[in-house]
Design a protein around this nucleic acid. Structure first.
Length: 478
RNA sequence: GGUGGGUUGGCCGAGAGGCGAGGCAACGGACUGCAAAUCCGUGUACACGGGUUCAAAUCCCGUACCCACCUCCA
């Protein structure tokens, strides 16, 4: 069974054939760490995390590089506004990003290079491009170096655009460009910029352009040719087009497949434009747990645009809880070794064929989730009949693990918002409620239904739902 | 102007020529002292107008509306 992926470059779903059998190399553009991450940002991370998990499941040895851009115009502008050093802002936001990834159970990549750590590699690449006649230092004294798009005939191939069809750049400051579409590989330092934001180069002090960063880092860690390059749809142009042009102009084959995830928007607007931070990860995690947010994302296809809404999020969380409660009812606890094993390495025979087929088909997580629900229903049916559900529970657990939404994944505990105080409160409430439930059990034994219901109502008025099970009553916060 | 994507039942969200993905909600039934949970059942939805076909949500033509990208937004 082969994995099939939609390739933006060829605009079709095609078989994934890695450059080297049994391996998969993946480069994903991470974030520019300039503000708190919001749900839109993490969608990309969640998507490629699922891809990575599936590639591994399918037997590929995955090398996954996801960079962070820690120097750019916005970081400089924002840090100046906030009156703190740019590197402090970038570092602080990088920490926030790490927290968001952890909260969503996004596994760390093989390596996460930062742009500022790879200036020498970028300079070497720029020199190569100049030597090959595809780049030139600006004619003015700016110290900029540009990529010469006219020198690279296939420029525009990734996004299927002709240079002459492109809207003329509204760029008021061509700064010595030969063509307005030429883009900066190196940006000479401006008087207004802090000296800490510049590095020495053959063209004078300055900093790298955005696109060259990814070309240099992908080249360093994955080599001149690698399998998959990913990112958000907005990066197709100019960023990925430029990356490809640079890297190929420098002699590399670059990525074999291009994958782009669609947006999450609110009120029909992309989040980078919407105001406020109500959709920042910490804010959303006030409403639902990280695992529920991840499930919400995974339940939609990565190439589908998602209109974020609290209602849809709550519904997804509701659905997720049904899966979770099946595992509980099936007796799958944290201690169950079977599930622990599955969590470590979901084995092939525990994954239903339909689930695997769904993921093989361009990461069809919605269809995979449907298979998951089918298994849950089957499991509940058997539970009701008093039959053994070990195999179904293991199967459900394995599917959840592949999607990265297993409720007992230690990752959730590590980043859970619940703290010590909360745990002690829960324990305290448990003692109090247990006392009331004992009274109610007695009332029920006496068939004093009025009293039993009165006790239940009293508990309910405190926001606690009581459920009777064959093993006695249980409670949850409703 | 160029490029790409979209419009599916009350809501979310798959599918991409025949067989009604799935979830949430709702309603009926089973179970239950009653609930809850769970299970069973209930929906003829595919923007609009034409066309192709034995058969169209799916292909073709046209129309409307929406969104994204076109030099540093995941």
């Amino acid at each position: 069974m082969t994995i099939r992926l939609y390739d933006t470059a060829t605009r079709e779903v095609r078989d994934f054939v890695p450059l080297e059998a049994g391996k998969a190399s993946l480069y994903v553009c991470g974030l520019t760490v300039q503000s708190e991450p919001h749900v839109g940002h993490v969608r990309s991370a969640v998507n490629f995390d699922v891809l990575q998990r599936w590639l591994r499941f399918r037997g590929h040895d995955v090398t996954f590089i996801r960079n962070i851009t820690d120097i750019d115009d916005k970081i400089l502008a924002k840090s100046a506004e906030q009156g703190r050093p740019w590197y402090n802002l970038a570092y602080a936001m990088k920490i926030e990003l790490d927290k968001a990834y952890a909260a969503l159970n996004v596994a760390p990549p093989t390596y996460e290079p930062a742009a500022t750590g790879h200036i020498p590699e970028m300079i070497v690449l720029i020199e190569e491009l100049i030597a090959r006649g595809h780049a030139y230092p600006a004619a003015d004294a700016s110290g900029d170096v540009y990529f010469d798009v006219r020198s690279w005939p296939s420029y525009g191939e990734l996004t299927h655009q002709g240079i002459d069809d492109m809207e003329p750049a509204a760029d008021a400051d061509p700064r010595g460009k030969r063509d307005p579409r030429d883009f900066a590989l190196w940006k000479g330092r401006k008087e207004s910029e802090p000296t800490t934001a510049s590095w020495p180069s053959p063209w004078g002090a300055g900093r790298p352009g955005w696109h060259i960063e990814c070309s240099a880092m992908a080249g360093k860690y994955l080599g001149p040719a690698f399998d998959i390059h990913g990112g958000g749809v907005d990066l197709r142009f100019p960023h990925h087009e430029n990356e490809q042009a640079q890297s190929r102009a420098a002699g590399g084959a670059f990525a074999s497949y291009w994958m782009h995830n669609a947006w999450i928007t609110t009120a029909g607007e992309k989040m980078s434009k919407s105001l406020g931070n109500t959709l920042s990860i910490p804010a959303v995690l006030q409403r639902v747990r990280g695992v529920e947010l991840r499930f919400y994302m995974v339940a939609a296809h990565y190439r589908s645009h998602v209109e974020f809404s609290d209602q849809a999020l709550d519904e997804a969380a509701e659905g997720y809880r049904r899966i979770e409660s099946f595992l509980e009812r099936a007796g799958v606890g944290r201690e169950t070794s079977l599930v622990e094993e599955v969590a470590q390495q979901p084995s092939r025979d525990q994954i239903p064929d339909a689930f695997a087929a769904a993921l093989d088909d361009d990461l069809g997580t919605p269809a995979a989730v449907a298979v998951l629900y089918d298994a849950v229903r089957e499991g509940n049916r058997r539970l009701a009949a008093g039959d053994d559900v070990t195999d179904v529970a293991a199967s459900v657990a394995a599917m959840l693990e592949v999607l990265g939404v297993h409720p007992h994944d230690p990752a959730w505990a590590a980043s859970a918002s619940s703290n010590d105080t909360e745990e002690r409160l829960t324990a305290a409430v448990d003692v109090l409620v247990a006392g009331l439930l004992d009274e109610r059990t007695q009332a029920r034994a006496d068939k004093d239904w009025a009293r039993a219901d009165a006790i239940r109502d009293r508990i309910k008025s405190a926001g606690i739902e009581v459920t009777d099970t064959p093993d006695g009553p249980t409670w949850t916060v409703s």
